[in-house]
Every structure is written in structure tokens, then in C-alpha cells.
Design a protein around this nucleic acid. Structure first.
Lengths: 221, 221
DNA sequence: ACCTGAACACCGTTCAAGT
DNA sequence: ACCTGAACACCGTTCAAGT
């Protein structure tokens, strides 16, 4: 009745699903190095090495968890008349999912898992680019550009292990630091120092807009 | 005569420069996790903990090495009539520097070091954007967008620890994998599968072009 | 002042052993 | 079949000790 035909032993305490759920949880609450064999062990009240019955190695587990985080990214995104605007919203949702789970960005950055939720996201993005009227070449290259920008900047922007200082005060310190540069060697930096390091979300939105608008220009050809 | 006024003991075997040089070397030949306290120890014929006299911790050392890799990125870049084309070349040079030193990308991705070579690169990029005729806001946001795209995609594209398979055969396997998807759920993916995963450099160049061209459109405003 | 040696608290992973 | 226990080969880092 459990899953195997010969349901002999007591029911297993672990499963891929339960392990993934625990990892997603650790990815959400803790920082990047919050998920280790030991931490998932205590989270599931189980020996650190128990997960090796269900996953080949830590990398396998992280990638599965990363894919799980991609679930629902395309759901409920309001449909705009312009497919590229919808796509822009999808990218923002993708970023939000990655940012709310520090360390997950590194997981998807390590290469395409070609697992379910990633496939769904890929299909949706390709479809939106295609229905915008882009040629096949531009659809594929545009897809890659948006993914690399969104995932790549999430890797950069995701909160690391130093959550002590908040983003704004850190940025303020950086700007102040630039003001100490020698004026004859760094004139432009000095002139613009006060504008450097706007909020990371504003940075991301700007680049996303440039990319999306640039892709729209390719439709005419 | 050495450096301190009281030059008593024998001259030190180590220095920040020598350690950084060794790390840059390891970053170039080996993969991402090729640089550890132990590996720099054997490279310099020195005890693994010796570097703690010269650097606060491993992070400090990696960031210094990452900055060293940025040296000369802006040197000898041919000056185009259009500053944004020169900027495009600078980004390509930055990518080349990061790609040829796997792991260095992670170093600069961990946040701005505000060290010398990074400052030089920042100044040059801001200057090129400024001389292109962009407003101050666009200069700063354009700078951030280009850096996040270039560094972020380098983190994604940099060769990891699995150098067994070459890029092209891995991409071929991925494309083949997409062809096994159920046709009714992934029609666009199936139609475009053969076009997916062009060379990483081509991917990067495409997105870079879209970004640069998009920034040029902002000049008119 | 600069480096070594020993030690500590971690990692991921393997494999024999228990149930 | 599934999990535990012990063990191995690694990490980064601290600190007392040598010279």
C-alpha cells in the first residue's frame, strides 16, 4: 500500500519531497551556507548522511531545491497586451523568488537543471518572446540574455552571509568611500559618487527595461 | 633598509604581492575551489596559516586577487568614434579577464571592493557613458546594468569544477534533452530546441549589444 | 616580526553495520 | 529498504610557540 509491491518494513521517515521542503526552508530563513548535510539533518531529526539514500550528492539536492523554488513563478502574472511587458513581469517574479531564497540563485546559476519548473518557465518565456513577433534567432538569444541578466544579477544582489548591515547604510558607506578618491584621476567618479548604488531593485529594473525595450525594437526587422 | 626603521630579522619570505600572485596563478590554472589555504601554502612553500599575517581572512585575499585581475582591462582598448562602442569592448575585455580566471568572477560578484583597479575600471566606464551624452541618472544606472550583466553572466558562464565535458557537447546533450519534452505542454521549447544554447560568448555578445544599443537610444531624450 | 605546529570546529562523502 | 555510526579527507581559523 505504500509504494512498493512488497510493503514489508516500517514506512520510511524520509522522502525526496520532505528533504527538498526542508532545504527550501533553510534557503529561505538562513543565508547561503545555511544548508549543509548537518543542518538538514537536525531540521529533519535525522542522521546527516541519511539524505544520500535519496540524492546522489549535495549538488543534486541543491538543484532540486532550486527548481522547486521556480514553481509558480509564471502563475498569476497579469497578461499585458504587449507580451514583452508580461515577460518583464515574469523576470521580476523570477528575481523575487531567487532573492527570497539566498543560495537558490547559485543553484540555478550552476547550469540548467532541465527539471519541471525550469522547463515551464522556459516554455513561457520563449512563448512570450515568440508571440511578440520576434524571429526565432532573436527569441532564443533574447531568452538567454534575459535569463543571464536576471539570474546573474540575483547571484550578485542576493544577501550574503553578512546581514549585519542593511543595504542602504552599506551603499552610503561605499559612496562616501568614493569621495576620497584623488580628483585628478577619478573626476567622473567623484562627480557622480552621490548617485552611485541606488537600490538594487531599481538597478535591476532599469537594466531589465533597457533589455526588453531593446528586444521590442527587433520586432520591426 | 628593508621597510621598517629597525631592520633586524631576516627578510620576510612572504608579502601581500607574492601571495596575490600565487592566488591569481591558482585561479588561472585550476578551477573554482583550487585556491584554499593549503594550496597557496604548497604553492609558496609555506605553512597554510602563514597568510594570516598578511590578510585578515580568505575573503580578504580573494577580493585582492580579484582586483588584481582587473588590472589592465581598460588598457589598449581601441578608441571608437562612438564612446558606447568603446564601452562595449571594455565589457568584453572584462568578461575575458573573468572567464580566464574561474572563481575571480565570484570574487568581484561578492560586492565592490573599491580597490584600485576596480576604481579605474569604474571611472573609465562612467566616463564613456558620460561622454556618450547620457544624463547623469542614465550614466549611473547604465553603468550598474552593464556591470551586473557582465559580471553576473561571467559567474554563470565561468567553467566550474566539471571540466570533463567540453561546452559544445554538453549543450548538445541539453538540446537533445529538450526534445523529449511532451509536445502538448512544451510546443515552443520543442520548436526551438535546436537553436537553444548557442555558444556562451555569442549569448553574451547579443545581450551586450541590446543593452548598449538601448542605452544609445536614451541619448536623444 | 614572521612563520610554524597543534588544535578546533566545521565540511561532504563512503561504507559497514544495525533494524 | 532505510537509516545510523564511525571514519576519512578535507576546509578556514585561532593561538601559543619557536626563531
Amino acid at each position: 500500500m505504500t509504494k512498493s509491491s512488497a510493503a514489508a518494513g516500517r514506512s520510511p521517515r524520509l522522502s525526496r519531497e520532505r528533504i527538498v521542503a526542508a532545504v527550501v526552508d533553510l534557503l529561505e530563513t538562513g543565508g547561503v551556507d545555511a544548508v549543509t548535510t548537518r543542518t538538514v539533518g537536525v531540521a529533519l531529526q535525522v542522521h546527516p548522511t541519511a539524505l544520500y539514500r535519496h540524492f546522489r550528492d549535495m549538488d543534486d539536492l541543491i538543484r532540486e531545491a532550486a527548481d522547486h523554488i521556480l514553481e509558480g513563478v509564471t502563475d498569476g502574472v497579469p497578461e499585458d497586451n504587449d507580451p514583452l511587458e508580461t515577460l518583464s513581469l515574469v523576470c521580476l517574479r523570477l528575481r523575487a523568488a531567487l532573492m527570497s531564497h539566498p543560495g537558490a540563485a547559485g543553484g540555478v546559476a550552476s547550469g540548467p537543471s532541465r527539471k519541471l519548473h525550469e522547463r515551464v518557465l522556459t516554455e513561457r518565456m520563449l512563448e512570450l518572446l515568440s508571440s511578440a513577433g520576434l524571429g526565432e534567432e532573436d527569441v532564443v538569444l533574447g531568452y538567454h540574455a534575459l535569463v543571464e541578466y536576471t539570474v546573474g544579477s540575483a547571484v550578485i544582489d542576493a544577501p550574503g552571509r553578512d546581514t549585519e548591515q542593511d543595504e542602504e547604510s552599506r551603499h552610503r558607506a561605499w559612496r562616501a568611500d568614493y569621495l576620497t578618491a584623488p580628483p585628478d584621476e577619478f573626476p567622473v567618479t567623484l562627480r557622480l559618487a552621490s548617485l552611485l548604488y541606488p537600490s538594487k531593485d531599481d538597478q535591476f529594473r532599469y537594466g531589465l527595461r533597457v533589455l526588453v525595450d531593446g528586444l521590442r525594437d527587433k520586432v520591426a526587422s
